[in-house]
Computed example of a mutant assay.
Amino acid sequence: MPVNRNALIRYRTIDQCLQNRFKKWTLDDLIDACSEALYEYQGINTGVSRRTVQADMEMMRSNKLGYEAPIIVVDKKYYTYSDKNYSITNSPLNQQDMQVLTEVSGLLKQFKGFNHFTDLNEMVSKLEDKIYSQKTQGPPVIDFEKNDNLKGLEWIEVIRKAIVAKKTMCVTYQSFKAREANTFCFSGYLLKEYRNRWFVLGLPHKRNNQILTLALDRIQTIQEDEEPYRENTVLDLATYYNDCIGVTKSPGQRDSEVVFWIDTANAPYVITKPLHHTQKLLSEDESGKIFSMRVILNFELERELLGFGAKMRVLGPRTLVKQIKEQLAKTLESYKIPGTETGEN
């Protein structure tokens, strides 16, 4: 059954709303959400009628699109899914979905090879692999890195919309070090991915007004807040993370020249995949190679360097060398077994 783009936007919007069980969704709430989505994606500002959203939910409940969504009404007022794990995005792709994906893939392939669209290459490969496995009903031929159990992914679209619309968010957040969660107003500026984890850079509405990076997997709730959004007037978001491995950084923090040696056998690994775009080869001999890079000293940098173990030795700066030595000493200490001298079984 043909479905136009506007209807698909409404279906996905209703689906996202009903997945969010932190809020009770009335029909008026769903109408407002669909109207906002159509304005954002299509520029349509005429709004959505009550009858349209009701018809959309009936269509989602049916098997005409293959959704059979378990939409129920609670207390004769609030809409939700009876199955908290349900989403129309988990439904198998139908023939129309396949046709749309094939058209999108063909369009994106036209941009492959252009410098401004190098980030599209992986996206196109993922899309083509999905289409191939769906058409052939066989296993995929590309296994991309992923973490299906990663928490916080449901907040990506919520935060992205808030950033685009310049809306303040009321965030309930609990870091790994905190004993209890904290709720505060937050103006988001940039979503950042690092090693399959997602973070949002922004400004908490507190007295200190310090830029903060929040991990999405530690966010418990997000709600739109009426407090005025605070514009970014300090950071160049396009270059903010250029001198950083990971996401741990403070505005104004200066980078350092990090120098490290790596043995001959493992040098090709950092040559073919540099630790940072500023990495340079300084010298080499039979034992190994010495590289340098200019980066912020942070936790992620230490973890990256420690991951090479005895195959790498940090030569500078002194503060980093000291920190690495301390971490290695703690590691050796943790392997010692009480009552023995060597720590061996």
Rank of each mutant, 00 (worst) to 15 (best):
E224N: 13
A69C: 09
Q223M: 10
A37V: 10
V247R: 01
R10I: 07
E122Q: 14
A165P: 00
E333D: 15
A7K: 11
R294T: 11
Q327T: 09
R160C: 04
L108A: 09
I156K: 06
L235Q: 01
V73E: 12
A265L: 10
L306E: 03
N63T: 07
R10Q: 09
L201I: 10
K167F: 00
E300A: 11
L305K: 03
D28P: 00
N298C: 09
E326A: 14
R51G: 11
P268A: 05
F114E: 14
Q95I: 12
L214E: 02
V234S: 11
R207G: 00
Q54A: 14
L150W: 06
V258P: 01
P92D: 08
Y79A: 07
K23D: 08
V3Y: 04
S133W: 03
E193S: 09
V258E: 01
Q99C: 11
N242M: 03
T239M: 08
K112A: 12
M98Q: 14
A162I: 09
L216I: 08
V321N: 06
I219V: 15
S62W: 11
R195E: 15
I9C: 05
I156E: 03
L120N: 02
N115A: 14
K77Q: 15
S187T: 05
P274Q: 13
K126E: 11
C17P: 04
V270Q: 01
L305E: 02
V53C: 06
N298K: 08
K135W: 08
K280F: 07
V270S: 04
I159A: 02
K126L: 15
L8S: 14
R10D: 03
F117P: 02
V270T: 07
L153E: 05
Y229F: 15
E180M: 07
L315Y: 07
N209P: 01
D148M: 10
G47C: 11
A178P: 02
V321G: 03
L38M: 12
S87R: 09
K146P: 00
W155K: 06
W25E: 05
E341A: 12
I296C: 10
T248V: 14
F186S: 03
K192M: 04
Q279H: 08
D285L: 12
L8A: 13
F308C: 06
Y67I: 05
F199T: 02
R21E: 13
Y86H: 04
D285W: 08
Q323C: 12
N266G: 00
A178R: 14
L306Y: 04
Q220V: 06
R230D: 01
D15F: 00
H276N: 10
S62M: 10
N90W: 07
W261V: 01
I44E: 13
N182T: 14
D143N: 15
T118I: 14
K151T: 12
T319A: 14
D236H: 04
F299S: 13
L281P: 01
Y240H: 06
M60Q: 06
T168Y: 03
A265V: 10
Q174R: 14
R230Q: 15
V295S: 02
S334L: 11
V124P: 04
L297H: 06
D56A: 11
C185P: 00
V200G: 03
T340A: 06
Y241D: 03
S250R: 12
A69L: 04
K112S: 13
R197K: 15
Y189F: 08
Q96I: 08
D83N: 11
V259I: 15
Q99Y: 11
S292G: 05
N298G: 06
D97E: 07
L237I: 02
